[in-house]
Design a protein around this nucleic acid. Structure first.
Lengths: 203, 203, 203, 203
DNA sequence: CATGAATGAGAGTTCATTCAT
DNA sequence: GATGAATGAACTCTCATTCAT
């Protein structure tokens, strides 16, 4: 029993090692720019070995996206426990942006990278994503119900906040904040978050 | 002298033909999907010819970025003529988003793509970009001066609006709006723009 | 002793299972289309297991050829019981062709495939083959003795009939009968067999 | 003019060099057994070069088949000039077999090799083939008309003779005449041809 | 006995790039 | 100025095979 357990563990560890290596590379060079060979080299295994753990490049990518989605979910999860919808919304946004700054690789993978998102195969991943999105919209709706917003269009409010947060993170992740000195960048981002929250309050 | 002038002119025309073809192609097939061969075929020249006008694929890429920047500038330019800063701001934002929807690949090229932006070679391009950004911030400042905003932090206001617009366009460009039905996507985007403007007004 | 006997028996059974699976597969997908992996999957063992029973793919191939030869022998065997040499000859030819139509891949394996027939390893197989051939020639000789043929050159008669039958089957097996409509092919083959028999009679 | 002509010639020569190398290899190792790399090595060029002359492996193969068909046609052509259908038939058969013995590679390629014969792409080739076949059947018909055969079934007669000749050549080409001493093989073949002709006469 | 894990070699194919002409 | 010919390097992926366990 101990043996098969250990083997299972080792197998899982190997999968993880591949995923990690792939993650770095995908982030650095984009989906098309990464080759199975690159990944194999990075972990010092032969290319063929990758295929023992993942059917093909796509499946590897999907697994990665799924993982990223999972990590993100866990990052945001604590928000769900907050009762007051407005506080929940604030915390959620903060955590979303924080996730982006702490895991630019993963954020990139989930929300920016251009890749075969034929979706079907990746259903699990996007099921999770859609669920999170729904949770977000529901929180906005709860805020509306409690009159935190004057507007009653939950969809548009949620989308607007998302646009801001996504823009904020992705300008950072894809290094389009050159005109701001490096040390100011994160500060500015959080100021902006506060600003949009204040703006939203008066909505 | 007339001869060398003509030659220069012809050379420039050829460069333009290449860039146009490249732009066209890569609008259709995405950046990674275009090869030097493709471009050569499109203009009915041999691949080798491309190299007479551009040192390598990177340089072509930089030139393309510059081109994109120029197109974008022209797309936004009319705003500059509007006297009232608030109206100018509104129009500018509208045009920025409109540019993103009309030229998703150029937008991608300018604001999303991860590529050897070793900058040096691309200075011209980013000079233009920084100029546009400054113009934007100045407009915000003008709005502040005319008390269109209560807040006086032009940088943060500008950045916040930019985040929203960029997030909005890039979610669209990189196809992260799957949870909304296709026909609703653009509508939602414009609603969101109106919303953030309204929000900003009360700032 | 009983134990080692049982082990031997089990080993032989496994060998058979592998051969059967290989035969089955390669009947379906042609010889080149089958990989050790395929075979292993079919018998639900690991690829490595195959190598416990066969040194390499070649040896498996040889065993398969032997198997095919055996099947063919059994297919033709009933002829041997026919007393009258002419009737025996007729039946033999009919069975030879029938074998080709019923087991095109085995026929291919035996009489068409180009493969490392370095022979040595495959002696057993060809011993069988030569025996069958001899039996055929002897039958022709018996027909000569009984004046079924005017010609007395048993070798040439046998070879001529074999050429016809082999050509007939192999044009079919290797799909060179395109100019005849599919449903006519087998009919034509049997008509041709009748014709050559009639021709031979007058020889 | 001289230059472009020379270039054309050189290009054609290169094509020929590739085809020749490929021919040998295909014959020795079968379609599946030959790789573009092999061919490239044989002519001491890089694999990519092959693709300048042939779209892919299939097209190379088709070109080869077409060539083979052409050579065969020329080999058989002189027969067409013979007026008397019976003499023409005899000569045609002799030439067919002779072609097989003289160009086993080509015969193999045309009538034995298993390969993607998706036909469509190879129309030209098989147009030629079918034409030759028709010519053969017509000659048989002419013999019937002139009472060289008692049977009036031109199709079956033609097919029967073809089976014999094809079997004869392909047993030789694919080395299935091991039971006959090497020096007897060709002799036996021609004896067999004479025999079937004699048989056919009495048909 | 059986296998999971691993791999070197090689498949077909495409690409950016060079260079003699 | 333009190009046809060529190529090295890279791509994804499969295969036969080995070996420690």
């Amino acid at each position: 029993m101990g043996i098969s357990e250990r083997k299972e563990r080792e197998k899982e560890e190997m999968r993880q090692r591949i995923l990690e290596a792939a993650l770095h590379l995908f982030r650095e060079r984009g989906f098309e720019g990464v080759s199975i060979r690159n990944i194999a080299e990075a972990i010092e295994y032969s290319p063929a070995t990758i295929y023992l753990y993942f059917k093909d490049k796509n499946e590897l990518f999907y697994a990665l996206q799924f993982e990223a989605m999972d990590i993100k979910r866990n990052h945001l999860l604590p928000s769900a426990a907050i009762e007051d919808p407005w506080e929940r919304l604030l915390d959620f946004g903060r955590r979303y942006i924080d996730f982006g700054f702490k895991h630019p690789d993963l954020y990139d993978l989930l929300f920016i990278i251009k890749a075969p998102m034929d979706a079907l195969e990746n259903q699990q991943c996007w099921t999770l994503g859609v669920a999170t999105h729904s949770f977000f919209v529901e929180t906005v709706q709860a805020c509306i119900d409690k009159r935190y917003f004057k507007s009653t269009d939950a969809d548009t409010i949620a989308y607007t906040l998302w646009c801001h947060a996504h823009g904020l993170v992705s300008l950072f992740v894809r290094e389009r904040m050159r005109m701001y000195p490096p040390e100011k960048r994160e500060v500015l981002a959080w100021q902006s978050y506060e600003m949009i929250i204040k703006m939203a309050q008066t909505l």
